[in-house]
C-alpha cells in the first residue's frame, strides 16, 4: 500500500495506522473485527472516531496499546519509526502511560475500589520518574484543573466517595499524569449526563490545547465529536469509510454512510429540519465474508461495481485531506446519495 503524499495543511502525524487487521478466534469461527483500518493522528490533533455499534472503534483503540491478549493483529501502527504491532511487551510498557494514555467508557469500574484515588492518579507520574512529593503536587494540580473541588482534601479518598462525573475526571487525571502525547478516549463521557459530557470534553479540549496533546475521541455522538474534533474518521464494518476535517465532513460528506449517519443524528434544532432518516438495515456481522463494499447492501446508491469491487480509502480528486472509500465519492459529495435509478437518469442527462 502506498502512503498518500503529505500536504502542507496536514499536521505531522504522531501515529499512523496502516492496513490494520484484527481477528479473534471464537467458538463460531474467526471474527474479523478490524479489516484494513487506515488512520492517522497529527501531533496535537484531535481526531474523532465515529461509527455504529460494532464497527470496530474500540478494537482499533485497544489494539493501539495492545490491550487485548487474544487478538491476532496484522498491519502497522507507526509511532515515529516504531511499529507498535511488533514492539516487545517491555517496549509497550514504556509507551503506555508515557507516550499514549487511555480513558475508558465506564468511570465506575476503571478505578481500583480499594486504593485511594490519589494513589492511582500518582501512578503514571511515578512511572515517569517523578518523586513522591512532586507527583502528589502535580496530581493535585491536575485534579483541580479538571474541576475537582478541594483536590488536596479529596486526594486520600476512595473511589466510592466520588460520583460518576467526578470519577471520570479522576480517570482522565490518572491518564494525563503520564504526560502522554496522545490520549485515546473510548467513549469517555457516554456514561454521564449530557451537560456533564459537554463540560468534560471542553476541559479535555483545553488541556489538549495547552499540552499540545493529540486526542483520539471515540464516540457514537456526532454532535459531541463535531464540537470537539479537528478531524473525523467514520468507521463502518471494521474499516474507515471516510475521513476529513470536521467542517468538510459534516458539510460535504463524500460517502453515503456518512451522509446517512448525519441525517440520522438527532439535532437540538430538529423542528426546522426534516425528520430523522435512520439508515435502513444493519451492518454485516464481522464473521461474514463478502465481496465488494460492505455498505453496499444498505446503500441507496449501490451499483453493480459496488458489489464486485471493494473500494479503497482514497483522497478525493481535489482534496488530498478528504478521503473516502466509495467508488462514487465525488458524485456523492456533489449530489448526495441519490438512489441508483435517478443516478442513471442524471448521468444520461449529463
Amino acid at each position: 500500500m502506498t502512503s498518500p503524499a503529505m500536504t502542507a495543511s496536514e499536521p505531522v502525524p504522531f501515529l499512523s495506522i496502516e492496513d490494520l487487521h484484527v481477528r479473534f478466534d471464537s467458538a463460531r469461527g474467526v471474527v474479523h473485527a478490524v479489516r484494513g483500518v487506515n488512520m492517522r493522528v497529527g501531533k496535537g490533533e484531535r481526531l474523532g472516531i465515529v461509527g455504529e455499534s460494532g464497527s470496530g472503534k474500540s478494537v482499533t483503540a485497544h489494539t493501539i496499546l495492545r490491550l487485548m491478549p487474544d487478538a491476532q493483529i496484522s498491519g502497522r501502527i507507526m509511532m515515529g519509526d516504531k511499529d507498535l504491532v511488533s514492539a516487545s511487551s517491555s517496549e509497550m510498557r514504556g509507551i503506555r502511560g508515557r507516550k499514549i494514555g487511555m480513558v475508558f467508557q465506564d468511570p465506575m469500574t476503571s478505578l481500583d475500589p480499594v486504593r485511594t484515588i490519589g494513589s492511582q492518579v500518582v501512578e503514571a507520574g511515578r512511572h515517569r520518574g517523578l518523586g513522591r512529593r512532586e507527583a502528589r503536587a502535580e496530581a493535585i494540580d491536575l485534579l483541580g484543573s479538571l474541576g475537582i473541588p478541594r483536590p488536596s482534601d479529596r486526594f486520600d479518598e476512595y473511589p466510592h466517595h466520588f460520583s460518576g462525573g467526578m470519577r471520570q475526571r479522576v480517570v482522565i487525571a490518572a491518564a494525563l499524569m503520564g504526560a502522554p502525547e496522545l490520549l485515546i478516549a473510548d467513549e469517555p463521557t457516554t456514561a454521564l449526563d449530557v451537560r456533564l459530557q459537554a463540560r468534560l470534553l471542553d476541559m479535555l479540549w483545553v488541556l489538549s490545547q495547552e499540552r499540545d496533546m493529540s486526542v483520539m475521541l471515540v464516540s457514537h455522538d456526532l454532535a459531541l465529536v463535531a464540537g470537539f474534533a479537528d478531524r473525523v474518521a467514520v468507521m463502518y464494518a471494521g474499516a474507515v469509510q471516510e475521513s476529513a476535517q470536521v467542517d468538510r465532513l459534516f458539510d460535504r460528506p463524500a460517502h453515503p454512510y456518512t451522509d446517512g449517519l448525519i441525517s440520522s443524528a438527532p439535532r437540538l434544532d430538529a423542528y426546522d429540519h426534516p425528520p430523522l432518516v435512520p439508515i435502513p438495515g444493519s451492518p454485516p456481522p464481522p464473521s461474514v465474508r463478502m465481496a465488494g463494499c460492505r455498505f453496499a447492501p444498505r446503500c441507496p446508491r449501490a451499483a453493480a461495481l459496488c458489489r464486485e469491487e471493494e473500494p479503497a480509502l482514497l483522497p478525493l480528486a481535489d482534496q488530498s485531506d478528504h478521503r473516502s472509500a466509495c467508488h462514487f465519492a465525488e458524485q456523492v459529495q456533489a449530489h448526495g446519495p441519490i438512489p441508483a435509478a435517478s443516478v442513471a437518469s442524471t448521468s444520461h442527462n449529463g
Binding site: 510498557r93 503506555r96 491518564a175
Partner: peptide, 12 residues
Amino acid sequence: KLYVTAARTRGL
C-alpha cells in the same frame, strides 16, 4: 476487571 486494564494503560 477494567481497573486492571486501566492500570496497564498507565504503564504499570
